[in-house]
Design a protein around this nucleic acid. Structure first.
Lengths: 158, 158
DNA sequence: CCAGTTTACTTGCTTGCGCAACAAAGCACT
DNA sequence: AGTGCTTTGTTGCGCAAGCAAGTAAACTGG
């Protein structure tokens, strides 16, 4: 009786192997490079930049802690501490959530928005030099949807 | 007098923006997912798996600490501690480097190799399900070379 | 309207990692 | 051989982030 065929039989093909190894390297190297760029060029960590960015794009420039954590892919505890840091720097403010007094809204202050605007060019340059310039000849739209599928994460269990 | 034209003028195009955001998400999500897969499925962290893998592929199954650190993209101090952990688990051994008594070789033990073999299928499944299955219709070879260009990192300065 | 449960966040503890300071071995030039 | 300089690795310290436990507010069923 023939059993169900697995997705692929044996080990990886040469092309798959090469792609996976290169991706692994990118995942470990690129965040460090871009974080270093941001710290050197704008005095802000990549994590903090992402938080400010997400807030700036939210209606009213505020977000619930848990939504923000999900958007930035941080644990709630991690976001709690990150926002505390940003608050002590005056970039963000925490206010009780009106319709649910358990919740808190992280609000981007004007200072915070100015800081984001200040850091934006650095991020832009870093993005181009480190990534986009090296993706010449690749279909970015197709790549984006593939990446989206990767990050989507259905079937969380192995 | 006309100044030098920057690589690209203004902000990112829609496709660039989408690709960058998706890549950012992949970089933050995927390592956690695959690490979780490895821990649950094989009781080993992704970092440790990578170390054992690199050692297993080296001639004589041993490597200098600094080479190993570079290969795994870890700081030397980080690798020092990682190897100490692995050594205490019996997966790796540290022996003085013959031709340069300052150096140490991390050597993969038989136990370590067995552990790697044991973890390999888990890694394979995780790799396929999380990544390769979602890259259908993408030229993997082209993608690999693009990733290699990203990870290569000439001009370290911003 | 009052337990018991669920949800939203914070805080204590631990881990992994990087940087800077250190020890030890090699090298270079006299 | 001897004195400095370089290279290789390890250790002290600090930081960011996750998990688990705690607190407070909101729902839910009697």
């Amino acid at each position: 009786m023939s059993r169900v065929t697995p997705d692929q039989p044996g080990p990886l093909s040469a092309a798959e192997e090469a792609a996976i190894r290169a991706l692994a390297r990118v995942m470990s190297v690129l965040p460090k490079l871009m974080d270093a760029d941001m710290r050197r060029g704008a005095g802000i960590s990549l994590t903090d930049y992402g938080i400010l960015m997400h807030l700036s794009e939210a209606p009213g420039r505020h977000m619930r802690m848990s939504d923000l954590a999900a958007a930035c892919d941080l644990s709630l505890s991690g976001m709690s501490r990150a926002v505390a840091r940003l608050e002590s720097d005056g970039l963000v403010l925490r206010v009780r959530c009106g319709e649910d007094a358990r919740g808190w809204n992280a609000v981007l202050t004007d200072t915070g928005f100015a800081r984001l605007e200040d850091a934006y060019p650095t991020n832009l340059v870093s993005t181009r030099r480190r990534v986009l310039d090296r993706f010449e000849g690749i279909d970015l739209a197709a790549l984006a949807t593939a990446f989206d599928r990767v990050a989507a994460d259905p079937d969380s269990d192995l």
